[in-house]
Simulated assay, not measured.
Amino acid sequence: MPTKPPRICSCGKITPANVLCLCERRRKAETDKRRPSAHDRGYDSHWKQARRAFLDKHPSCAMCGKPAVVVDHKTPHRGDKAKFWDKTNWQSLCAHHHNSTKQSQERKQ
């Protein structure tokens, strides 16, 4: 079975694929300290109800058609409550596409 080759971290160290370098872990930890909780970002019981209703109406991933488990904001809301609750900005995604494809698209924006 083929394996991914090692990669070079931004600090210059060679690290195994899919493993965070120590500097990357520190950076992530610092970012996580500053980030508000999910509840503070609007993902509360009202969101859970709306998410469940949306997934019931749109059960397939918008990218591949597999069963969806995530309601994603097509355009990041960045704390804007109007964008957050705009259902035309929502799409159903499978975990794979939400956690990989969509995240890499958002990093480019």
Score class of each variant (00 low, 15 high):
Pro2Phe: 01
Pro5Gln: 05
Pro5Asn: 01
Pro6Val: 03
Arg7Phe: 02
Ile8Ala: 01
Cys9Glu: 04
Cys11Asn: 01
Gly12Cys: 01
Lys13Cys: 03
Lys13Asn: 05
Ile14Cys: 05
Ile14Arg: 08
Thr15Lys: 05
Thr15Ile: 13
Pro16Gly: 07
Pro16His: 06
Ala17Asn: 02
Leu20Ile: 01
Cys21His: 13
Cys21Ser: 11
Leu22Asp: 14
Glu24Ala: 08
Arg25Met: 02
Arg26Leu: 15
Ala29Val: 07
Ala29Leu: 10
Asp32Arg: 14
Asp32Cys: 07
Asp32Leu: 13
Lys33Gln: 04
Arg34Pro: 04
Arg35Thr: 10
Ser37Lys: 05
Ala38His: 11
Ala38Arg: 10
His39Gln: 13
His39Phe: 11
Asp40Thr: 13
Arg41Ala: 04
Arg41Ser: 06
Tyr43Trp: 12
Asp44Lys: 09
Lys48Ser: 09
Gln49Glu: 10
Arg51Asn: 10
Ala53Cys: 12
Phe54Tyr: 15
Leu55Met: 08
Leu55Asp: 09
Lys57Asn: 12
His58Lys: 01
His58Ile: 06
Pro59Arg: 02
Pro59Asp: 02
Ser60Asp: 10
Ser60Glu: 05
Cys64Val: 04
Cys64Gln: 11
Gly65Pro: 01
Gly65Trp: 02
Gly65His: 06
Lys66Gln: 15
Lys66Val: 14
Pro67Tyr: 08
Val69Gly: 05
Val70Met: 09
Asp72Gly: 11
His73Leu: 08
His73Glu: 06
His73Tyr: 06
His73Ser: 09
Lys74Thr: 14
Pro76Thr: 11
Pro76Val: 12
Arg78His: 13
Arg78Thr: 07
Gly79Tyr: 10
Asp80Gln: 11
Asp80Lys: 11
Asp80Ile: 12
Ala82Gln: 06
Phe84Gln: 10
Trp85Ile: 06
Asp86Arg: 03
Lys87Gly: 00
Asn89Glu: 06
Asn89Gln: 04
Trp90Ala: 14
Ser92Asn: 08
Cys94Gly: 10
Cys94Ser: 09
Cys94Val: 15
Ala95His: 12
His96Asp: 04
His97Glu: 03
His98Tyr: 14
His98Ser: 15
His98Gly: 15
Ser100Gly: 06
Gln103Ser: 00
Ser104Cys: 00
Glu106Tyr: 12
Glu106Arg: 12
Arg107Thr: 02
Arg107Trp: 04
Lys108Phe: 01
Lys108Gln: 14
Gln109Met: 06
